[in-house]
Simulated assay, not measured.
Amino acid sequence: MNEWRRGGPVSRRQLFAAGGLSAMGVALAGCTGSGDDSGGDAPAPGAGAGTLKEMGPPETTSITFAIGNPNYASQAPFFIGMENGYYEERGFTDVEVRNLEETIQAVLSRGATFGIADTDEAALAVKDGAAIRAIGCGRDRETVLMALAPGIKNPSDLAGKKAIMFTPGTRNFNVRAEILRAWGLRDPAEQLEIVELSGASDAWVQALLSGQVAATTAFQRHIAQLRREGATVLPARIVNVPQEVMIARQDFIEQNPNTVANMWMAHLQSMGVYFDFSKMNDVLDLMRENDFEITDDFVEGHASQVEEWSPNGGFRMAEMAAFLQEMKSEDLIPADFKYQDFMDLTGLHQAQQALGIGPWPPNEDVGVMTKYELLG
Protein backbone atom coordinates (compact mmCIF):
# COMPACT_ATOMS: atom_id res chain seq x y z
CA MET A 1 0.00 0.00 0.00
CA ASN A 2 1.30 3.43 -0.94
CA GLU A 3 0.31 6.62 0.84
CA TRP A 4 0.96 10.25 0.05
CA ARG A 5 0.13 13.41 1.97
CA ARG A 6 0.05 17.06 1.03
CA GLY A 7 3.48 18.37 0.28
CA GLY A 8 6.40 17.69 -2.01
CA PRO A 9 9.93 18.67 -2.82
CA VAL A 10 8.91 21.39 -5.28
CA SER A 11 5.99 23.82 -5.16
CA ARG A 12 4.43 24.36 -8.57
CA ARG A 13 1.67 26.74 -7.58
CA GLN A 14 2.95 29.53 -9.79
CA LEU A 15 3.36 27.18 -12.73
CA PHE A 16 -0.12 25.77 -12.33
CA ALA A 17 -1.95 28.95 -11.40
CA ALA A 18 -2.72 30.11 -14.92
CA GLY A 19 -4.08 26.74 -15.94
CA GLY A 20 -6.81 26.30 -13.34
CA LEU A 21 -10.13 28.00 -13.83
CA SER A 22 -9.39 29.42 -17.28
CA ALA A 23 -8.97 25.91 -18.65
CA MET A 24 -11.91 24.75 -16.57
CA GLY A 25 -14.28 27.16 -18.25
CA VAL A 26 -13.48 25.75 -21.68
CA ALA A 27 -13.54 22.10 -20.64
CA LEU A 28 -16.74 22.34 -18.66
CA ALA A 29 -18.65 24.28 -21.27
CA GLY A 30 -17.93 21.48 -23.71
CA CYS A 31 -19.05 18.78 -21.31
CA THR A 32 -22.31 20.39 -20.22
CA GLY A 33 -23.18 21.52 -23.70
CA SER A 34 -23.37 25.19 -22.78
CA GLY A 35 -20.91 27.98 -23.32
CA ASP A 36 -23.29 30.60 -21.93
CA ASP A 37 -21.79 32.62 -19.08
CA SER A 38 -25.20 32.62 -17.40
CA GLY A 39 -25.22 28.82 -17.12
CA GLY A 40 -24.51 28.91 -13.39
CA ASP A 41 -27.63 30.97 -12.65
CA ALA A 42 -30.31 29.00 -14.49
CA PRO A 43 -31.59 25.88 -12.72
CA ALA A 44 -31.08 22.70 -14.72
CA PRO A 45 -34.23 20.57 -15.08
CA GLY A 46 -34.62 18.51 -11.94
CA ALA A 47 -31.33 19.70 -10.50
CA GLY A 48 -32.77 22.07 -7.92
CA ALA A 49 -30.10 24.61 -8.81
CA GLY A 50 -32.13 27.48 -7.43
CA THR A 51 -32.40 25.84 -4.01
CA LEU A 52 -28.75 24.90 -3.45
CA LYS A 53 -27.48 26.04 -0.08
CA GLU A 54 -24.56 28.42 0.17
CA MET A 55 -21.35 26.52 0.81
CA GLY A 56 -19.79 26.92 4.24
CA PRO A 57 -16.36 25.82 5.50
CA PRO A 58 -15.74 22.07 5.67
CA GLU A 59 -16.96 20.32 8.81
CA THR A 60 -13.78 18.23 8.86
CA THR A 61 -10.41 19.47 7.63
CA SER A 62 -8.74 16.07 7.22
CA ILE A 63 -9.74 13.91 4.23
CA THR A 64 -8.42 10.74 2.64
CA PHE A 65 -8.92 9.43 -0.90
CA ALA A 66 -8.80 5.69 -1.65
CA ILE A 67 -7.72 4.99 -5.23
CA GLY A 68 -7.39 1.48 -6.61
CA ASN A 69 -5.31 2.23 -9.69
CA PRO A 70 -1.65 2.90 -8.82
CA ASN A 71 -0.65 4.61 -12.07
CA TYR A 72 0.06 8.32 -12.21
CA ALA A 73 -2.81 9.15 -14.58
CA SER A 74 -5.37 7.92 -12.04
CA GLN A 75 -3.91 9.98 -9.21
CA ALA A 76 -2.62 13.14 -10.87
CA PRO A 77 -5.75 15.26 -10.27
CA PHE A 78 -5.45 14.74 -6.52
CA PHE A 79 -1.75 15.58 -6.48
CA ILE A 80 -2.38 18.71 -8.52
CA GLY A 81 -4.92 19.78 -5.91
CA MET A 82 -2.52 19.12 -3.05
CA GLU A 83 0.53 20.71 -4.65
CA ASN A 84 -1.28 23.71 -6.05
CA GLY A 85 -3.01 24.46 -2.75
CA TYR A 86 -6.60 23.99 -3.93
CA TYR A 87 -7.53 21.80 -0.96
CA GLU A 88 -5.81 24.19 1.41
CA GLU A 89 -7.76 27.10 -0.07
CA ARG A 90 -10.99 25.21 0.64
CA GLY A 91 -10.09 24.75 4.33
CA PHE A 92 -8.45 21.32 4.31
CA THR A 93 -5.30 21.01 6.42
CA ASP A 94 -4.55 17.31 5.86
CA VAL A 95 -5.16 15.52 2.56
CA GLU A 96 -4.01 11.97 1.96
CA VAL A 97 -4.11 9.67 -1.08
CA ARG A 98 -4.07 5.95 -0.32
CA ASN A 99 -3.53 3.28 -2.95
CA LEU A 100 -5.99 0.52 -1.97
CA GLU A 101 -7.49 -2.24 -4.08
CA GLU A 102 -10.85 -2.43 -2.25
CA THR A 103 -11.93 1.20 -2.30
CA ILE A 104 -15.59 0.57 -1.46
CA GLN A 105 -14.63 -1.43 1.60
CA ALA A 106 -12.12 1.24 2.59
CA VAL A 107 -14.84 3.90 2.55
CA LEU A 108 -17.37 1.67 4.32
CA SER A 109 -14.87 0.87 7.09
CA ARG A 110 -13.94 4.57 7.42
CA GLY A 111 -10.43 3.84 6.22
CA ALA A 112 -10.96 6.59 3.65
CA THR A 113 -13.26 9.58 3.39
CA PHE A 114 -13.73 9.34 -0.36
CA GLY A 115 -12.92 6.70 -2.93
CA ILE A 116 -12.87 6.09 -6.65
CA ALA A 117 -14.89 2.99 -7.54
CA ASP A 118 -16.21 1.31 -10.67
CA THR A 119 -19.73 2.58 -11.26
CA ASP A 120 -21.27 -0.89 -11.59
CA GLU A 121 -19.65 -2.02 -8.33
CA ALA A 122 -20.92 1.06 -6.51
CA ALA A 123 -24.45 0.55 -7.86
CA LEU A 124 -24.39 -3.12 -6.88
CA ALA A 125 -23.11 -2.29 -3.40
CA VAL A 126 -25.95 0.18 -2.81
CA LYS A 127 -28.49 -2.28 -4.22
CA ASP A 128 -27.21 -4.84 -1.73
CA GLY A 129 -27.60 -2.41 1.17
CA ALA A 130 -24.16 -0.80 1.49
CA ALA A 131 -24.36 2.60 3.19
CA ILE A 132 -22.47 4.51 0.50
CA ARG A 133 -23.46 6.88 -2.26
CA ALA A 134 -21.78 7.92 -5.47
CA ILE A 135 -21.27 11.69 -5.33
CA GLY A 136 -20.04 12.37 -8.86
CA CYS A 137 -18.10 10.94 -11.77
CA GLY A 138 -14.40 10.14 -12.22
CA ARG A 139 -13.71 8.73 -15.66
CA ASP A 140 -16.68 9.03 -17.99
CA ARG A 141 -15.44 7.16 -21.04
CA GLU A 142 -13.25 4.18 -21.77
CA THR A 143 -10.96 2.92 -24.49
CA VAL A 144 -11.25 -0.87 -24.34
CA LEU A 145 -8.39 -2.92 -25.79
CA MET A 146 -7.65 -6.63 -26.09
CA ALA A 147 -4.15 -7.86 -26.89
CA LEU A 148 -3.09 -11.25 -28.24
CA ALA A 149 0.20 -12.95 -27.46
CA PRO A 150 2.88 -13.23 -30.15
CA GLY A 151 2.03 -16.24 -32.28
CA ILE A 152 -1.75 -15.90 -31.92
CA LYS A 153 -2.84 -15.18 -35.47
CA ASN A 154 -6.41 -16.48 -35.73
CA PRO A 155 -9.28 -17.58 -33.46
CA SER A 156 -8.30 -21.26 -33.61
CA ASP A 157 -4.91 -20.34 -32.11
CA LEU A 158 -6.65 -18.75 -29.14
CA ALA A 159 -9.37 -21.32 -28.42
CA GLY A 160 -8.81 -23.22 -25.17
CA LYS A 161 -6.11 -20.88 -23.90
CA LYS A 162 -5.96 -18.56 -20.88
CA ALA A 163 -7.21 -14.98 -21.06
CA ILE A 164 -7.46 -12.05 -18.65
CA MET A 165 -10.63 -10.08 -19.34
CA PHE A 166 -12.45 -9.67 -16.01
CA THR A 167 -15.32 -11.82 -14.73
CA PRO A 168 -17.79 -13.40 -17.18
CA GLY A 169 -21.23 -11.80 -16.96
CA THR A 170 -19.92 -8.37 -15.98
CA ARG A 171 -19.95 -5.28 -18.18
CA ASN A 172 -16.15 -5.26 -18.27
CA PHE A 173 -16.09 -8.82 -19.59
CA ASN A 174 -18.91 -8.32 -22.08
CA VAL A 175 -17.36 -5.39 -23.91
CA ARG A 176 -14.07 -7.27 -24.25
CA ALA A 177 -15.89 -10.37 -25.42
CA GLU A 178 -17.46 -8.24 -28.16
CA ILE A 179 -13.98 -7.31 -29.40
CA LEU A 180 -12.98 -10.97 -29.59
CA ARG A 181 -16.23 -11.94 -31.31
CA ALA A 182 -15.68 -9.21 -33.91
CA TRP A 183 -12.23 -10.72 -34.50
CA GLY A 184 -13.83 -14.13 -35.09
CA LEU A 185 -13.92 -16.00 -31.77
CA ARG A 186 -17.42 -17.45 -31.52
CA ASP A 187 -17.97 -17.59 -27.74
CA PRO A 188 -15.16 -16.22 -25.54
CA ALA A 189 -16.85 -17.32 -22.29
CA GLU A 190 -16.98 -20.93 -23.49
CA GLN A 191 -13.85 -21.11 -25.63
CA LEU A 192 -11.36 -19.47 -23.26
CA GLU A 193 -10.07 -20.25 -19.79
CA ILE A 194 -10.73 -16.97 -17.99
CA VAL A 195 -8.15 -16.32 -15.28
CA GLU A 196 -7.41 -13.55 -12.81
CA LEU A 197 -3.98 -12.17 -11.99
CA SER A 198 -3.07 -9.68 -9.28
CA GLY A 199 -0.84 -6.72 -9.95
CA ALA A 200 -3.09 -4.72 -12.30
CA SER A 201 -2.70 -4.17 -16.02
CA ASP A 202 1.10 -3.84 -16.22
CA ALA A 203 1.38 -7.33 -14.72
CA TRP A 204 -1.25 -8.63 -17.13
CA VAL A 205 0.72 -7.38 -20.11
CA GLN A 206 3.88 -8.99 -18.77
CA ALA A 207 1.97 -12.25 -18.34
CA LEU A 208 0.95 -12.05 -21.98
CA LEU A 209 4.46 -11.33 -23.23
CA SER A 210 5.97 -14.10 -21.08
CA GLY A 211 3.51 -16.69 -22.38
CA GLN A 212 1.48 -17.16 -19.20
CA VAL A 213 -1.72 -16.09 -20.96
CA ALA A 214 -2.70 -15.86 -24.61
CA ALA A 215 -4.92 -12.78 -24.41
CA THR A 216 -5.37 -9.91 -22.02
CA THR A 217 -7.12 -6.63 -21.62
CA ALA A 218 -4.71 -3.72 -21.99
CA PHE A 219 -4.71 0.06 -21.94
CA GLN A 220 -3.52 2.80 -24.24
CA ARG A 221 -0.16 3.18 -22.54
CA HIS A 222 0.63 -0.46 -23.40
CA ILE A 223 0.11 -0.23 -27.16
CA ALA A 224 3.67 0.71 -28.13
CA GLN A 225 5.24 -1.93 -25.87
CA LEU A 226 2.90 -4.66 -27.12
CA ARG A 227 3.68 -3.89 -30.74
CA ARG A 228 7.42 -3.76 -30.07
CA GLU A 229 7.21 -7.23 -28.54
CA GLY A 230 5.27 -8.72 -31.45
CA ALA A 231 1.85 -8.91 -29.82
CA THR A 232 -1.35 -8.04 -31.67
CA VAL A 233 -3.62 -5.26 -30.44
CA LEU A 234 -7.14 -5.71 -31.76
CA PRO A 235 -9.23 -2.72 -32.89
CA ALA A 236 -10.43 -0.79 -29.85
CA ARG A 237 -13.91 -0.10 -28.61
CA ILE A 238 -14.42 3.52 -27.54
CA VAL A 239 -17.19 3.36 -24.96
CA ASN A 240 -18.81 6.52 -23.65
CA VAL A 241 -19.83 5.30 -20.22
CA PRO A 242 -19.47 6.86 -16.77
CA GLN A 243 -17.16 4.04 -15.74
CA GLU A 244 -15.94 5.45 -12.41
CA VAL A 245 -17.59 7.36 -9.59
CA MET A 246 -16.44 9.15 -6.47
CA ILE A 247 -18.01 7.56 -3.40
CA ALA A 248 -18.51 8.42 0.27
CA ARG A 249 -20.43 6.99 3.20
CA GLN A 250 -24.06 8.06 3.23
CA ASP A 251 -23.92 9.20 6.85
CA PHE A 252 -20.75 11.20 6.15
CA ILE A 253 -22.46 13.02 3.28
CA GLU A 254 -25.42 13.88 5.49
CA GLN A 255 -23.28 15.06 8.40
CA ASN A 256 -20.57 16.82 6.36
CA PRO A 257 -22.23 18.44 3.33
CA ASN A 258 -19.76 21.34 3.23
CA THR A 259 -16.82 18.94 3.29
CA VAL A 260 -18.19 17.20 0.21
CA ALA A 261 -18.86 20.47 -1.62
CA ASN A 262 -15.44 21.94 -0.79
CA MET A 263 -13.72 18.73 -1.86
CA TRP A 264 -15.44 19.05 -5.23
CA MET A 265 -14.40 22.70 -5.51
CA ALA A 266 -10.75 21.70 -5.11
CA HIS A 267 -11.11 18.70 -7.41
CA LEU A 268 -12.73 20.65 -10.23
CA GLN A 269 -10.01 23.29 -10.04
CA SER A 270 -7.46 20.49 -10.31
CA MET A 271 -9.24 19.11 -13.35
CA GLY A 272 -8.89 22.51 -14.99
CA VAL A 273 -5.11 22.10 -14.77
CA TYR A 274 -5.18 18.46 -15.80
CA PHE A 275 -7.13 19.32 -18.96
CA ASP A 276 -4.68 22.10 -19.87
CA PHE A 277 -2.33 20.35 -22.30
CA SER A 278 0.22 23.16 -21.97
CA LYS A 279 0.71 22.02 -18.34
CA MET A 280 1.46 18.40 -19.29
CA ASN A 281 5.18 18.52 -18.50
CA ASP A 282 4.53 20.24 -15.17
CA VAL A 283 2.05 17.51 -14.23
CA LEU A 284 4.46 14.76 -15.28
CA ASP A 285 7.31 16.35 -13.31
CA LEU A 286 5.10 16.66 -10.24
CA MET A 287 4.18 12.99 -10.37
CA ARG A 288 7.79 11.89 -10.93
CA GLU A 289 8.82 13.92 -7.89
CA ASN A 290 6.23 11.98 -5.91
CA ASP A 291 7.83 8.67 -6.91
CA PHE A 292 5.56 7.65 -9.77
CA GLU A 293 7.29 5.80 -12.58
CA ILE A 294 6.33 7.41 -15.88
CA THR A 295 7.64 5.62 -18.95
CA ASP A 296 7.89 7.05 -22.46
CA ASP A 297 4.78 5.04 -23.33
CA PHE A 298 2.90 6.80 -20.53
CA VAL A 299 4.04 10.18 -21.83
CA GLU A 300 2.93 9.28 -25.35
CA GLY A 301 -0.53 8.37 -24.08
CA HIS A 302 -0.95 11.27 -21.64
CA ALA A 303 -3.55 13.24 -23.59
CA SER A 304 -5.58 10.12 -24.33
CA GLN A 305 -5.62 9.23 -20.64
CA VAL A 306 -6.66 12.72 -19.57
CA GLU A 307 -9.66 12.88 -21.88
CA GLU A 308 -11.16 9.77 -20.32
CA TRP A 309 -11.92 11.85 -17.21
CA SER A 310 -15.07 13.86 -16.69
CA PRO A 311 -13.83 17.46 -16.50
CA ASN A 312 -16.77 18.61 -14.35
CA GLY A 313 -17.55 15.56 -12.22
CA GLY A 314 -20.79 15.03 -14.13
CA PHE A 315 -22.02 12.67 -16.81
CA ARG A 316 -24.62 12.48 -19.56
CA MET A 317 -27.99 11.11 -18.48
CA ALA A 318 -28.44 8.84 -21.51
CA GLU A 319 -24.98 7.31 -21.08
CA MET A 320 -25.58 6.55 -17.40
CA ALA A 321 -29.03 5.15 -18.22
CA ALA A 322 -27.55 2.94 -20.96
CA PHE A 323 -24.86 1.77 -18.54
CA LEU A 324 -27.48 0.79 -15.97
CA GLN A 325 -29.65 -0.79 -18.67
CA GLU A 326 -26.80 -3.13 -19.51
CA MET A 327 -26.63 -4.16 -15.85
CA LYS A 328 -30.40 -4.73 -15.87
CA SER A 329 -30.10 -6.96 -18.92
CA GLU A 330 -27.78 -9.18 -16.85
CA ASP A 331 -30.29 -9.15 -13.94
CA LEU A 332 -27.72 -7.43 -11.73
CA ILE A 333 -30.02 -4.60 -10.63
CA PRO A 334 -33.82 -4.19 -10.58
CA ALA A 335 -35.59 -3.04 -13.73
CA ASP A 336 -36.68 0.22 -12.09
CA PHE A 337 -33.20 1.11 -10.73
CA LYS A 338 -32.08 4.63 -11.72
CA TYR A 339 -28.98 6.64 -11.00
CA GLN A 340 -30.73 8.68 -8.32
CA ASP A 341 -31.09 5.43 -6.36
CA PHE A 342 -27.35 5.25 -5.66
CA MET A 343 -26.13 8.82 -6.18
CA ASP A 344 -26.18 12.06 -4.17
CA LEU A 345 -25.03 14.94 -6.36
CA THR A 346 -25.75 17.80 -3.96
CA GLY A 347 -22.12 18.62 -3.12
CA LEU A 348 -21.07 18.39 -6.76
CA HIS A 349 -23.88 20.74 -7.77
CA GLN A 350 -22.85 23.27 -5.12
CA ALA A 351 -19.27 23.28 -6.40
CA GLN A 352 -20.32 23.48 -10.04
CA GLN A 353 -22.64 26.40 -9.33
CA ALA A 354 -19.98 28.20 -7.27
CA LEU A 355 -17.60 27.91 -10.23
CA GLY A 356 -20.26 29.29 -12.56
CA ILE A 357 -20.64 26.21 -14.72
CA GLY A 358 -24.19 25.15 -13.88
CA PRO A 359 -25.19 22.03 -11.94
CA TRP A 360 -25.20 18.94 -14.15
CA PRO A 361 -26.54 16.31 -14.41
CA PRO A 362 -29.97 16.72 -12.80
CA ASN A 363 -30.65 14.92 -9.53
CA GLU A 364 -33.07 12.67 -11.40
CA ASP A 365 -32.94 11.08 -14.82
CA VAL A 366 -35.34 13.25 -16.83
CA GLY A 367 -34.01 12.17 -20.22
CA VAL A 368 -36.42 11.13 -22.95
CA MET A 369 -34.41 7.98 -23.73
CA THR A 370 -35.27 6.69 -20.28
CA LYS A 371 -38.82 8.03 -20.31
CA TYR A 372 -39.69 6.24 -23.54
CA GLU A 373 -37.58 3.15 -22.77
CA LEU A 374 -35.46 3.40 -25.92
CA LEU A 375 -32.15 2.25 -24.49
CA GLY A 376 -32.45 -1.38 -25.58
Rank of each mutant, 00 (worst) to 15 (best):
G8A: 00
P9M: 12
A18Q: 14
A23M: 11
G25E: 14
C31L: 10
D37Q: 11
P45H: 13
G50K: 03
G56M: 02
T60P: 05
T60E: 14
I63R: 08
A73E: 10
G85K: 04
R90F: 10
E96F: 00
E101Y: 12
Q105D: 15
L108R: 11
A117E: 08
A125Q: 01
R133Y: 03
A134Q: 00
E142H: 15
L148M: 10
S156I: 11
L158H: 04
G160E: 04
A163W: 05
P168T: 04
G169M: 00
N174E: 13
V175P: 07
R176C: 05
Q191M: 11
E193V: 15
W204D: 05
R221A: 12
R227K: 15
I253K: 02
Q255P: 03
Q255F: 02
N256K: 05
A266V: 00
M271E: 06
Y274D: 05
L286R: 00
M287A: 06
I294S: 03
T295M: 08
D297I: 07
G301W: 09
A303M: 03
S304I: 11
V306K: 03
S310K: 01
G314T: 06
E319T: 13
Q325I: 06
D331I: 09
A335D: 15
D344V: 12
L345C: 09
Q353F: 06
G356H: 04
G358K: 04
P361S: 02
E364H: 13
G367Y: 04
V368K: 12
T370W: 15
